[in-house]
Amino acid sequence: MGFKLLSKLLVYLTASIMAIASPLAFSVDSSGEYPTVSEIPVGEVRLYQIADGVWSHIATQSFDGAVYPSNGLIVRDGDELLLIDTAWGAKNTAALLAEIEKQIGLPVTRAVSTHFHDDRVGGVDVLRAAGVATYASPSTRRLAEVEGNEIPTHSLEGLSSSGDAVRFGPVELFYPGAAHSTDNLIVYVPSASVLYGGCAIYELSRTSAGNVADADLAEWPTSIERIQQHYPEAQFVIPGHGLPGGLDLLKHTTNVVKAHTNRSVVE
């Protein structure tokens, strides 16, 4: 069995187990497998329904001669939608809004960016022009300005110390501490036991640490421990890039980060 097929099978099995364990909360999309990078042309966006009122959005972007996937989250909030992270750029984010209108038909009224990198804030200006209120932590807003990236308009308070959590509509926002970046936030959907790890969490097929220019490698494993301790009931975990899975993604990420750190020390 090929690795790609095995990865998709694991996603399907995880979703099936969740649907059985929580039949009222989960209505997993039966329309197909989780979209992969090879299936999404740059400039297009796919939506994948995880649970009743919960979707991931998947886009792709060219970077350094390669094409990478990027995940975000959409959560229903009454007759409105909360968006977590842009679709990595203005063109993708405009396509995301169009796809949401086509498939869901509810307005996106608020959006949260989970850290300051372009795959999370690139497209904020498109959201703002569409009347979406954009939010991020003060740290993310400051770092985005320093980096020359787009800056969300509103500040999220109460997320300055490791372990801080605040309720934001249908989700809980959690600051686990520094990891992929010093400002990275985690998003949890309690009604569906869905954990969105953003770039602080890796997919299972990833074996290298990737972009760690703004990471705190020493603190990252401790931050992941905080996530595990705060959300032990999480059933569906979405990484910032690639295929979702279960809580095993947290341990896998820790292993990859520690291996990278150990290699760096040896070198």
Rank of each mutant, 00 (worst) to 15 (best):
P41R: 06
H241W: 03
S137Q: 10
V132D: 04
G72I: 01
A90E: 11
E101M: 01
R110C: 03
S193G: 08
L185P: 00
G122S: 05
K91R: 12
N184V: 13
A136I: 15
G198S: 09
Q49K: 05
V189Y: 14
G32Y: 01
E172G: 10
L250R: 03
L24R: 04
V37Y: 07
A209M: 13
H230Y: 01
R226G: 10
Y188T: 12
L106N: 11
N255K: 02
S16W: 04
F168C: 14
M1R: 07
L243K: 04
T253D: 05
E233M: 05
P138W: 12
I224N: 12
F3M: 12
L83I: 14
W55E: 06
A179T: 02
A19F: 11
G2R: 05
E157P: 09
P69E: 05
S191E: 13
K8M: 12
Q235C: 15
R110D: 14
P69Q: 00
L83W: 00
P23H: 08
N184S: 09
G242I: 02
V126F: 09
G240N: 05
L156N: 02
R263P: 04
V45H: 08
A87C: 15
T60L: 04
D85W: 00
T222L: 10
T222G: 09
T14E: 06
G122P: 14
N92R: 13
T134Q: 15
A218G: 09
G131H: 09
G32A: 08
S139C: 02
E157K: 02
M1H: 08
E80Y: 12
E33T: 04
T254C: 07
K251S: 02
E267K: 03
L173E: 01
K8L: 07
A19I: 14
N255I: 09
T114M: 00
Y48S: 08
S162P: 06
P190I: 13
V187A: 10
D125T: 15
V266I: 08
A90P: 13
V75K: 14
W220A: 10
P176Q: 11
P23L: 05
V257M: 15
L73C: 10
H117F: 00
A130R: 05
S137K: 14
G177N: 15
S137C: 13
Q235L: 13
V266K: 14
A209L: 06
W55S: 05
G105H: 02
I151D: 15
P23Y: 06
G169L: 10
Y202D: 03
N262L: 05
P221V: 12
A66C: 03
A133H: 01
V121T: 00
V121G: 06
L143K: 01
P69F: 02
L97Y: 01
D119V: 08
G197W: 01
L204D: 13
A215S: 08
G240Y: 05
G245D: 09
Y68I: 02
V28R: 06
P232V: 14
G105K: 14
H241G: 02
A178P: 12
S208P: 08
V132M: 02
D125F: 01
S162N: 06
F26A: 04
S31I: 02
L159T: 10
E203P: 03
A25G: 08
A234I: 14
R110N: 09
V28M: 08
M18A: 03
L5E: 08
A234R: 13
N71W: 11
K8Q: 08
L195E: 13
A234K: 15
A95Y: 04
A25N: 01
A213G: 11
E172T: 13
A144P: 14
H180W: 01
G177K: 02
R206L: 14
W88M: 01
P170T: 06
E33G: 06
Y231F: 02
E145A: 14
D85A: 00
N262K: 12
S22V: 10
Y48M: 02
V45G: 09
V45C: 13
Q49L: 09
T86M: 09
G177L: 03
L217W: 08
I104C: 05
T207R: 09
G89K: 12
G169S: 07
L83F: 04
T14L: 12
T222I: 08
E267Y: 04
S223K: 12
A111L: 14
Q229T: 13
H230S: 15
Y135W: 02
L24S: 12
D125W: 15
Y68Q: 03
Q61T: 04
V54W: 12
R46N: 13
A200D: 14
S38L: 07
T254W: 12
D29H: 13
L5P: 07
T207W: 13
V212H: 14
G198M: 00
S70F: 11
P152D: 10
L173C: 09
T114S: 10
L97N: 01
I100L: 12
H117Q: 00
T254I: 05
L159Q: 14
Y196W: 09
S208R: 10
T114W: 00
A178S: 13
I17V: 04
N149T: 00
P190G: 10
P221H: 14
V45E: 11
G158I: 15
P221N: 15
T207F: 12
V194Y: 15
S113M: 01
D248W: 07
A90I: 11
V37N: 03
I20G: 06
L47A: 05
D183K: 01
S155G: 01
D118T: 12
S193N: 13
T222K: 14
L250P: 12
G123L: 02
V67T: 12
G105L: 06
S16Y: 06
V237M: 02
R226F: 02
T114Q: 00
I58V: 09
S160V: 07
N71S: 05
G78F: 09
P170H: 01
Y12H: 15
V265D: 08
S181L: 01
G65W: 04
R142G: 08
G105M: 01
G158C: 07
V67M: 10
C199D: 10
D29T: 08
L24M: 05
L5N: 14
H115K: 00
L5A: 12
V42M: 02
G43I: 12
I17L: 04
I238N: 05
L73Q: 04
P138Q: 08
P221A: 10
L217F: 01
P23G: 08
G240C: 01
V189N: 06
V11E: 05
K4Y: 10
A94H: 14
P41K: 03
H252Q: 14
N71D: 07
V75Q: 12
N255P: 15
L82T: 10
W55N: 12
V187R: 01
D52T: 04
R167Y: 03
G246L: 02
V45I: 13
C199T: 01
Q61W: 09
V146A: 04
R167S: 10
T114K: 00
K102C: 08
G210C: 10
F174D: 07
T36A: 05
P190L: 08
A90T: 14
I186N: 07
R128L: 13
E157L: 11
L195I: 15
A200W: 02
G246Q: 02
H252M: 13
P138N: 15
I40Q: 05
S31R: 07
G131V: 02
V121W: 01
V108R: 00
F174R: 09
V108Y: 13
T60S: 11
T153K: 08
G131K: 15
V265K: 02
Y202S: 11
S137F: 05
G148F: 13
Y68T: 05
H252P: 03
G169M: 13
V112Y: 01
N211V: 12
K258P: 14
L156T: 02
P69G: 06
L82A: 14
L250C: 09
G169P: 09
T140E: 08
D216L: 09
A21R: 10
T114F: 02
L156S: 03
D118Q: 01
E233Y: 07
A51M: 02
N255E: 12
Y231V: 09
Y135M: 14
S62P: 07
R141I: 13
P41D: 06
T254D: 09
L247Y: 15
M18W: 07
Y188I: 07
P221M: 11
A111R: 00
A51S: 09
P190S: 06
T109S: 08
E225F: 15
P69V: 09
F63A: 05
G123E: 02
L83Q: 10
D79G: 12
Q229M: 11
E267L: 03
L6R: 11
T222F: 13
Y188W: 12
V121C: 12
D29K: 06
E225Q: 02
H252E: 09
N255M: 11
S139P: 15
L5G: 06
T140R: 02
D119K: 01
Q228C: 01
H180N: 01
V257D: 13
E225K: 07
E39C: 08
H260D: 05
D29E: 11
Y202E: 10
L106A: 06
E80V: 11
V121D: 08
A59V: 06
I58A: 03
G123W: 02
